[in-house]
Every structure is written in C-alpha cells, then in structure tokens.
Design a protein around this nucleic acid. Structure first.
Lengths: 241, 241, 241, 241
DNA sequence: AATGAATGAGGGTTCATTCAT
DNA sequence: AATGAATGAACCCTCATTCAT
C-alpha cells in the first residue's frame, strides 16, 4: 500500500510497456534514418516499431525530438565502440590501425549513418545533451586516432571531422533506393579504400584543413543562406606528394 | 531554295526562349538531384530555374523524363572529362594517377553526384540512350583506370563501380544542409584520401567484389522488395594486407 | 485593284483558311461535347480540329463563346431536320408518327446531345441568337408534333420540352466512358421504346405538366442554389390509365 | 469474462464517428456520381460530406475503392427494391406492370444513376463483390421483368440491360445544373413514357439486340481505344410494327 | 498510456487561358 | 492570323501533426 503510494509519488513512473515502446521507437527510427534519411515518414517508423502513430508523439513531441534522441543513442553506441577500440589499440600498439579499421566497420552496423543530422540543421547544436555526446564521441575517436598516430600508422594531416564526415557519407543509402541489401558490401569496400588512404605514409597533400566536429558545427551554423557553389579545387595544392 | 531552307529552319527551330528554359531546368534539376536526390520537389526545381512549374511539365512530361535527361547530360559531361583524362594519361604515363586525380576532382564540379539515380529505381535501365550513356561513361572511366593500372599505379582489385559509387557518395551534400560553400573543401579532402587508398601498393584486402556499373544496375533490379539488412563485414576477410 | 480596296474596307474580311479553321473547330467541339460533355479539354478540341490551341481562342474568346456557337450550329441542323420531317408528315399524314421517328433517330446523328448546355448554366439564355435558335427549334419540333397529334398518333399530354429533354438524356454518353462505339445501338433502342411510349393511346397518366423549352429555361434560371432533392413521385398520380 | 468480452468488442469496434463519417462520404459520393459521373472531384465529395479531404482517403485508399463501395451500396439498395417489387408482382399478377413502375420510380430516389460507373472503366468488373452485386441486381430485375412478361404485360424483345441503362440515363441531372428540384418531375414523366413503351403490345421493332448487364460489361471491356462513331440506325429495321 | 481517426499543408500533375514569336 | 510556349489555378494524393476515445 505504502509502496504503491511511493511509486505514485514518483510523478513520472514509467510503465514497463511505455519504456519498451520508447526503445522500440528509437530503434525503428534509427533504422529508418539510415535507410531513408531523417525525413523518413513517422507513420512508417511507428508501424515498424509496432505502435500507433500517436504513441510516437507521446514520447517525442515533434520530429526534432525524435531525431535528437536517435542521435544521442547512436552517439553513445559509437562512442562505446571507439572506447573499446582504444583499449585494443593500447593493448597492442602494433595493431592500432587494425583497431581503427575494426571500429570503422563496426560503426556501420551501429548505424553511424544516422548521425548525419548532427551535421545539419535537423538538430539543435547547442543542446547540452547533444553537446556532451559530441564531446564524448569526439574525445573517443580522437583518442583512438591519437593512438594510431602515436603508433606511426596514421597520417598526421587529418582530424576527427575528416573521418566522421567521410564515414557518414560513405555509409549513407543511395537516395531513392530503399533498403539496399547488396549495397552493404560496397560500403565496406569503400571504407577499406578510404582507410587505406589514411595510413602512413601519406600519399598526397590535402586541400583545406583538418577539422573537429565542433569546428564543423560552427562552420555549418555560420554559413549564409545561399551562395553560388564553386569548387576551390583548382586554387588549392592537390598534387601528389 | 534559300527561302525553302529558311522556312524549313523556321518550322523545326525550337523557340530561343524555350531552349533557354529547357537548359535552365536541366541545370536546376542537376543541382537539386545532387543535393536532395531524384525525389527533389519539382516545384523547387522550377523555382530555381526561374520558370513556372507547368513549364517543367511541358518540357518533360513526367519526373522520369527529367531525371532521364539530367542523367544523360551529366553522363555526357563526365564522360568527356574522363576521355580528356585518358589523353593526358597516355601523353605521360608517369602522371597517369595524377590524370585520374584530376578527373575525380573536376567531376565534382560537373555534379557527378546527380548520377545517383542511375543506381536507383528512378530511371529505366533498359532505355537505349541511358544504356549507351552508361556504356560510354563506363568505357571512358574504365579506360582511364586501365591506363593508370597499366602504369602500375592503381591497385588491381577495384573496378569502375567502386570509383563511381564512392565518388557519388563522397560528393553529396549533407542532408538538409542546402548548398554548403565550406563543405566543398571537405569533399576534396575526402576524395584525396580515397584516391590515396586506390594507389599501389594495395594496403588492405577488400571484401565483396569489384563491380561495373552494369553489374550494379543488375543487382539493384534484382533485389527483393524488403529484407533484413545484415552487414557481411564479419564474414569477410578485411585484414590488412 | 479597286476590288482589293473594297475587300479591305470590309474591316472583317475573313480569310479563307480562317473560315475553314473556324468551321473545323466547331465541328470538333460538337463531337467532343457529345462524347465528353461541355467540359471537354479545349486542347483536345484544338488537336482534333488540327489547329493550335491558341487559334481556338482567337475565334472564341472563352469556352462559353465556343459552346454558344456549337449550340447554335446544332440547333440549326436539328431545326432543319424537324422542318424536313414536317414536310414528310404533311405529305402523308398516315405516316406522321414515322416522320417523327425518323426525325428523332436522325437527330442523334446530328449530335443533338450537344444541346444539353441549352438547358444548363453553360450558356446565356438571353442571348438573342440563342433565343432565336431555340424559338426556331421549338416551332419546328412543335410543328412536327402538332402534325402527328393532328393525325391522332401522338398522345396529347406531352409537349416539346418532354421530347427534347428525354432526347438529350438518352443520347448523352455514359460519364467516364469515352467514345462508346457499341453504345449507339443502345441509344437507338431506347429512343424506339421512348417513342412507343409517346404513341396513342396513352398507356399511363403523367405526373407534372408538359413544358416547352422556354418554360424549362425559366425553371432553370429561377431555381435556388441548392435544396434537398426529394422525389414527388409518391405525391403525384402515376397510376396506369 | 465479461470484461474480456467488452475489451474484445472495443478492439474491433470501429469508432462511432468513423462509421458515421464513412456513411456520409458514401452518401455524398453517391450524389456526386449521379450528377457528375465517377470523375467527380474528391475534394467536393469531402466538402459535401462535411469532412476533410484526407478523411476520404483514410476510408477509401483511392478513388477506385470509393467508386467500388458506392456501386455496391446502390446495387444493394436497388436490388432490394426489385426484390420487393417481385413479391408485389407475385401477389397480384394483374398488377405486375404496376409493380415494375413502382420499382422504376423508387429506384430514382435510391440514386440508381450512381450505377453508371458499373458500365465504365471506373470499376474492376472482375472483382468478386461487384460481380456478385451485379448478379444479384440482374437476377432481381430480370426476375421482376420475367413476372411482368409472364403476366403478358411486358414486351419480349427487351432485357435487363435495356431497362437499367435507360433508367440511368433518364435520371441523370443535366450537366452543370446542380441539383434540380424542378427537374425531378420531368424525370418521372420520362420514366412513365419510357415504361409505356415497354408494355405489350410492342409498337415498334427494335434495332440492335437485348443485352444483360454482363454483356454490356463485356462489350465495354472489349472495345477498342477509339473508332469513328457511326450510327447503325439507317442499316437496321426501325419500322413501326 | 495508447490508439485510431481527422485534418491541413504541401507536392505532383493537368488544363484553361494568356503571351511572345 | 496562327502558333508554340508559359502560367496559375484546381485537383489528386501523402504525411506530419492534432484530437477524441
């Protein structure tokens, strides 16, 4: 009796099924975002999660909220992966680059592509949770890269932003292509090739400059509404080393 | 005689402004497809082209027709770039890889990302024009890659499909991000890194298998409506060479 | 030379080809109106007439104008048919009803169904030309019916409106059905049955009252925007005679 | 136990307001189809039903589905009327034709004109429900006509298709005329006249041949895209008997 | 708390009408 | 005078979001 009262006092006692639903929604959304991008129909997410559409709204008042939580969830998982990889790299510095490879390929299966909103206007960059998540992710991946760099296996002209953005891009689904079963092997091929390009010795000189996630966010936030898009390729040193 | 010629010319001459409009629509669509994929709102394309929405329909009876022509246009431009690069590579085999680099970086400015529909359901793969375009593009890029390979500068376990798909992916703008001026330098950085991964000697073993554009199309056409998506990463040899 | 001047003075010298075009447009419109109703696409009418769409607008500033002229044209043709039938009926009063039958069936081939706008809001009832046409048609058909009635072969409780409206209705195309080749024989069957019902002796008592075209127009013009539609069948004497 | 029953009832019970809406949509559509045919704007149907347009789509995923249900609904109602009339005809064979008259006039109020899609491409003729409905309707009306024929009061050269098609045509409102209160009495006049033409003894010979609804459907399905439309009136015997 | 239903806004497409050649 | 081209309004349909049960 008293127990019940206490339970009731916790104003937000989450019912077991509510918690389960919430989790299923986030999972379904993560899948959908990877496959269709952050514009995926909410009704479809609800269907895939096995709940009514309105239930999604109960848990996440608007799409932004849902994106927010998905990003948090993926950030957490990928951060954990990176932290694990750090341990591996420290255990055997000779295999540091291998640890990085492992991290990259596994991150795909954690739907790291769902992180793309982190770099767009879809989420509020100043939200404390997201900021914290980004810091943790950045620290972990930077830590991992630092280990590989320390082992002399990673070129020195790249930073976290380079890896994360390329990772997001290479693992995004082709637009208008639905769920491509056969496409996944291609993703892993491209990741391998990209990773090969990260190894020492560097085989070319890079244009632009290395950037962290924080810097990328800042760049995005500051950009002007619309401008003619011109490559700066010809103006930059791109020559083979 | 001359009168007849003039008259005839008049009969078949498309109006100057109509031609201009058509060109502007294709250009606008190319931009939009790169940014948003082949599902980009036609109204927005029309707006960007500076014409009414119905004008788009006059020139291209349905979306497929528009996509078709954009793909053809980009295919042509990119094929020409590749063919030019071939000439460069032949002139100086020692700089073959440099010719490939040049091609890749320039292709970005021709909006090669607009080719993504070529790999989706958005175009009829059996249309003669598209098939011919794909063949020309494939031959040109394959020809270019062959030159670099012959010069001993390109790893041998990759094919046209690998390059084209990765190129499309790496050059796509971030979703919801509009036209990112600052992002372009990142694109070129990633292309450089990816290209470095293509050089000899190969630094890793690749999962899956090399594929041509034709094979990719076939894979897509054959895929079933929906299946659980499982990475095959863990089942494949991904080890460092 | 002087002839030319005179000709020019007639400010509205209609060029031969313009006249021909005008005629072809009206003909095409008549066909289309019968087949698809007065909402038929003007572009399609233009196409069928073999002219550009804008040419239709040169001749008929708006759709109403076109409908107007089609109605006039059909009214004329059908009036002529009726007048011919009168002559036949007078020549052989014993075959008066046969003359009426002939008129009805031939009127179908003159696309009398295109007259339906005469009873709707699609045309201005007060336009002098239309009014005159309606009077001529009414007089002719009434004249024909009078002959048959005088011959004792037509029931006396019906008037022109009854015949014309039923004629229009029975010959209208089924909605959404396109051009029904096989449907025409059905039209003629129904006309026969309806005509049989017009013969003496009358086999039933009719509800409502006989009406002329003028009265019908007036009824239509006076009707209120929207009212619940209730049959008055149960309130009227409909019994078999 | 009882709780379970209640719960179960709740699970499958369609909401009261949803049911009401569905009914209102079908009713509105029935009216619109009678007036404008099966191409009537869905937005207008929604407006008339007093619901948002999207609600129509929730209940009927596409136009075909709506047409389908309207046709079923009308078929049911009219079949019931015909079956009732059969009973009347059997009770007093001398009044068999009167029963037919009653059926015809009452069918108008059930919006029998909404059956027009049954003869167009708007519905799938092979759908089991529609087929069953058509059979029921055909059997009922044919049964009614058989009773009248058996009583020697109905001419023998007509079939169900003749009656149904003429009925649909004669009861359709004039195009562009909205709902004509005053027009209804005309409809009933014409029905009376048409019915008089169906009585024995037949007063003319009919062109073409009697057809059932099934045969009409077949004719429609087999017809070619477009052909010159020629009356066969002159080639057929139409003489007075 | 969960849900089915309702809705309005937005994009796709057609078509009557106007414009420029 | 004739025409191809351009346009905006209307309609169809989808989907995010709100409402009522």
């Amino acid at each position: 009796m008293e127990t019940a009262t206490v339970a009731q006092r916790r104003t937000t006692r989450p019912r077991a099924d509510a918690l389960r639903n919430r989790e299923r929604i986030v999972t379904a959304a993560r899948e959908m975002f990877v496959e269709q991008g952050p514009e995926a129909p909410l009704d479809e997410i609800a269907r895939r999660a096995g709940v009514g559409n309105a239930t999604v709204y109960r848990h996440f008042p608007d799409r932004g909220e849902l994106v927010h939580h998905v990003v948090l969830s993926v950030t957490d998982r990928v951060s954990a992966l990176a932290e694990t990889a750090i341990a591996t790299a420290e255990a055997d510095p000779g295999a540091a680059f291998e640890a990085l490879r492992g991290f990259v390929h596994t991150a795909v299966d954690e739907r790291i592509g769902a992180l793309c909103p982190i770099l767009s206007e879809a989420v509020d960059p100043d939200h404390p949770d997201l900021h914290a998540g980004r810091i943790r992710l950045e620290d972990a991946v930077e830590g991992l890269m630092a280990r590989v760099r320390a082992a002399g296996q990673l070129r020195t002209d790249i930073a976290v932003g380079d890896l994360m953005v390329a990772l997001s891009q290479l693992t995004r689904p082709l637009p208008g292509a639905g769920c491509l079963v056969d496409f996944d092997q291609f993703v892993h091929r491209h990741l391998q090739l990209f990773l090969d390009g990260l190894m020492t010795p560097a085989r070319s000189e890079l244009p632009g400059h290395a950037a962290t996630l924080e810097e990328l966010r800042r760049d995005i936030d500051e950009r002007r509404p619309r401008q003619p898009r011109n490559s700066d390729y010809s103006e930059e040193g791109l020559g083979q080393k």
